[in-house]
Write a protein that binds this DNA or RNA. Structure first.
Lengths: 335, 335
DNA sequence: CGATCGTTATGAATCGTTTCAATCCAATGT
DNA sequence: ACATTGGATTGAAACGATTCATAACGATCG
């Protein structure tokens, strides 16, 4: 049933070695012969057996990617970037989502090792010991959004502190003074970093204040109740600029403020984080902080391939700065 | 460097065959021996070479999935469903996104064939001839959201006509009579089917009318301008129920209507399609038609495995009915 | 004319696992 | 004491592509 190089060789009247050369080193084969072999391939419908290739080669042409959630736009873009980069080298990316479950992550990693992937790009959890061992066994690892003490592991990340600063500086630049941070729980690293950045920005600006409205999660609903609590404030205490730790919260805040008769951006400016697709489609288009997720994926694969090419090269840690996306929700007050 | 069965066998003082049996047929091995082998495996950090397994087995334990867009929630859920189903059989799903590009789709399919996947689940384009050939070469195919004349190819789909009927019937049931359909272009199959369903529902209900507001795409922005044109209508011509061909459009319509001082659902009831996460977070929670995407992925894998198990079994075509998700935007008029 | 060189082509060996016919051994039956 | 049974183990063959040392061949040169 299955057609192999042997069959192609027979059909073309050459040896198996020649068929292989047509496929992998065409320059070694006389054009006429190559043509004949190619015809045989087409005619018989020969499809290379990747398992056999890999076995011989000792490694696959594959990169493993473990994401927390495939449907999360951040990871979707990250994966996209990784695929694009891999594609230029003729590599393929296998994506597995762990759903933030340690067991599923383990299973995925085991799978990738069995497949002898060139390396793995992984974002979350991942027992440091496990990672160490993987590298010893020849599977390179690049961490996303997570640094480690292990100096032999490369990583890529975006600077959430810089993002927080960027957001608040922008609010201040557009004339806001009393800033509120909406987000939580602060046990989440990203959230606390963004808050640190916000605090830092406030500290470097005369006459500005920061208040924190903590939430229990990062949903539209929570944002709405945070917004309601802002509406309920004494007008004198009420902030004139709100920085939400993510866009969903920001959307909730926007809904509550507008229901409360507060104008955005005239009364209160509002900025979110993540720059989800939806940010530009809210009633007042939402300013946000954009993470270069695609570039992150791109770079992660770069780092991986660098270490594959030279296993002794030092691990690298690359941190990207997020970008500001200005929209109507933070336009300057119409004086 | 790499540890193989040979090394494990030596370390445990048994033959390679026994090691293999510990891994694949533990019942054939004496418990004491199995234990000894297992220790050697752990100690040496032996990791099976999947390429060699597959080569011997002649096929992989893998299913290929080609989606139009990984970030599209519909496909993300589909993939999720497929993975869940595959997982119970110890299979893994390789996901590739074609970005609706025929070339990329071809590349992905080639790749899957080289990997000797058990079969492929694919949604779009796909040259019928190619599919035919793939099946002849032993790679089974299941189509998603696309039927074909080829009787040997299985498929799964959701019934968009039924969805359109469901939406409009719901509007009528809640007391609406003058329905507007917002969507387009009708060259898209899904859109035209939903419209057909809407028309059919109207036809079976006395005293109801349907007008169509055609759009050029399915974005929030387009929805907003469609909504504005509704606001601009003579109150006597204005619909009292709007069925949007997707949730993004519906959200745009909602924004425009509310800005125009029209109350939802009191003045106009609104229902969307797809039931995206965001539907429940709009200012007035949006009713929608939910596609059982996860179940679709689940079933696609089912069909695939059925044919793998018995290649001579007939192709099956399964069509799911969508479900109604009722939220505030279609609550009955407060009489 | 024989030696030499470069281009093409060959095919046996190889990768690591699984499979399966053959072997071994202790226990049981006669 | 010998044959039989069946559970446990063995190890060589097989999967299919790639590699590489070797050979074949014609052309060029001294």
């Amino acid at each position: 049933m299955a057609i192999g190089v042997r069959d192609v060789a027979d059909a073309a009247g050459v040896s198996v070695g020649t068929v292989s050369n047509v496929l992998n080193n065409p320059s070694l084969v006389a054009p006429a012969t190559a043509q004949r072999v190619q015809s045989a391939i087409d005619e018989l419908g020969f499809v290379r057996n990747d398992a056999a290739r890999q076995l011989r080669a000792g490694r696959s042409r594959t990169i493993g990617l473990v994401v927390l959630e495939a449907s999360n736009p951040f990871f979707a873009d990250l994966a996209r970037g990784a695929e694009e980069r891999a594609y230029t080298d003729g590599l393929i990316v296998l994506t597995a989502n762990s759903d933030d479950d340690a067991v599923r992550e383990q299973v995925s990693l085991d799978m990738f090792q069995q497949q002898r992937v060139l390396g793995v790009v992984i974002s979350p959890r991942a027992d440091p010991v496990r990672i160490q061992r993987m590298q010893e066994q020849g599977t390179h690892v690049v961490l996303v959004e997570r640094t480690t003490t292990d100096p032999t592991v490369s990583s890529v990340a975006v600077d959430n502190i810089a993002g927080g600063q960027l957001a608040v500086n922008h609010l201040v630049t557009t004339g806001r003074r009393r800033i509120a941070f909406v987000g939580g729980p602060t046990s989440i690293r990203q959230v606390s970093d963004r808050l640190i950045g916000a605090t830092r920005a406030i500290g470097s600006q005369q006459g500005t204040t920061l208040q924190v409205v903590e939430t229990t999660n990062m949903t539209v609903l929570e944002g709405r109740s945070a917004g309601e609590s802002i509406v309920a404030m004494e007008p004198s205490e009420r902030p004139d600029g709100v920085f939400a730790a993510n866009d969903l919260l920001a959307i909730g805040v926007m809904q509550a403020l507008r229901s409360g008769g507060i104008s955005i951006p005239d009364d209160i400016a509002l900025i979110g984080y993540d720059d989800i697709d939806f940010a530009m489609s809210t009633e007042v288009p939402l300013s946000s902080i954009r993470q270069p997720s695609r570039k992150l994926g791109h770079t992660a694969v770069d780092l991986l391939l660098a270490r594959v090419a030279d296993p002794d090269s030092p691990a690298q840690h690359i941190v990207f700065d997020p970008e500001l996306a200005v929209r109507e929700s933070t336009h300057s007050t119409t004086s």
